[in-house]
């Protein structure tokens, strides 16, 4: 479990297996939802998560690989690419302030 205060979040990385499909769609939506927050959103393959990521979002089925590839990062797993409640909670926390426990 890693906690991070929303005001310390500068970069969110959406990771998926290849970094060319679902992560792209989710990252595009997040970018739009967070465009006034100053938080950068990137999409990458799960084995290529950048060191400066503050929060990593990935499909629950890839969570173990993401944890191994980016140890110590706050990790938010999701089940569905668009409209997942875990992603909605993250956006709400960033907008309103609070702590992300993941």
């Amino acid at each position: 479990m890693t906690s991070i205060d929303s005001k310390d979040i500068r970069k969110i990385v959406v990771a998926c297996d290849a970094g060319m499909g679902s992560s792209v769609m989710l990252a595009s939506q997040l970018r739009k939802q967070l465009k006034d927050s100053g938080v950068a959103v990137e999409h990458t393959p799960v084995n290529d998560i950048p060191a400066d990521a503050d929060v990593v979002l990935c499909h629950a089925g890839l969570a173990a690989r993401a944890r191994a590839a980016a140890p110590g990062k706050a990790l938010v797993p999701f089940q569905i690419f668009l409209g997942d409640p875990a992603v909605t909670r993250l956006v709400t926390t960033i907008r309103n302030g609070g702590v992300v426990d993941a």
Partner: peptide, 24 residues
């Protein structure tokens, strides 16, 4: 191969099949 790891179903009757990172 990619589809067998995690479904690319994206909702609303759409799927977004694509290859693996290695297949780039």
């Amino acid at each position: 191969e990619r589809e067998r790891t995690i479904s690319t179903y994206a909702g609303e009757g759409f799927a977004i099949p694509h290859g693996t990172a290695a297949a780039r």
